[in-house]
């Protein structure tokens, strides 16, 4: 099964850029991604620029409306994702728990629909 692991965190809980904690987190992401690829579980994955760069778009009455920022007002922001291929939810949970942000944020696992 494929799962999308959505990585959420409140910016104030994340390690600051330039601190040793930040370097440790980035090193953690590098080794996690390598591990995922070695297992054959990696399909895709990226980090996202901060929410300040987000644009929300909708079509209303045939007109495109745009807005600054994310669609939902939440304390935790979407910061990145992995698309993984694993046998079941148990395996997906194990992978999600290895994502460095799981230590201070939340990983939302969503099964990918099969058409």
């Amino acid at each position: 099964m494929q799962y999308l692991a959505l990585i959420y965190a409140a910016p104030e809980n994340a390690p600051r850029y330039g601190t040793p904690e930040f370097s440790a987190m980035m090193a953690g992401y590098t080794s996690f991604t390598a591990e995922l690829k070695a297992r054959g579980a990696f399909v895709a994955g990226d980090g996202l620029k901060p929410v300040e760069t987000a644009t929300s778009v909708r079509l209303r009455g045939g007109k495109v409306e745009t807005m600054d920022g994310p669609f939902a007002e939440t304390k935790e922001h979407l910061g990145g994702y992995y698309l993984i291929e694993v046998p079941d939810l148990d395996a997906a949970i194990k992978v999600a728990a290895m994502i460095p942000t799981a230590g201070f944020g939340t990983i939302e696992l969503r099964p990918v629909m099969v058409y």
Partner: peptide, 10 residues
């Protein structure tokens, strides 16, 4: 739908 396995845990 969530892919919860029908299995005894590891």
């Amino acid at each position: 739908e969530a892919g919860i396995p029908f299995a005894v845990p590891d």
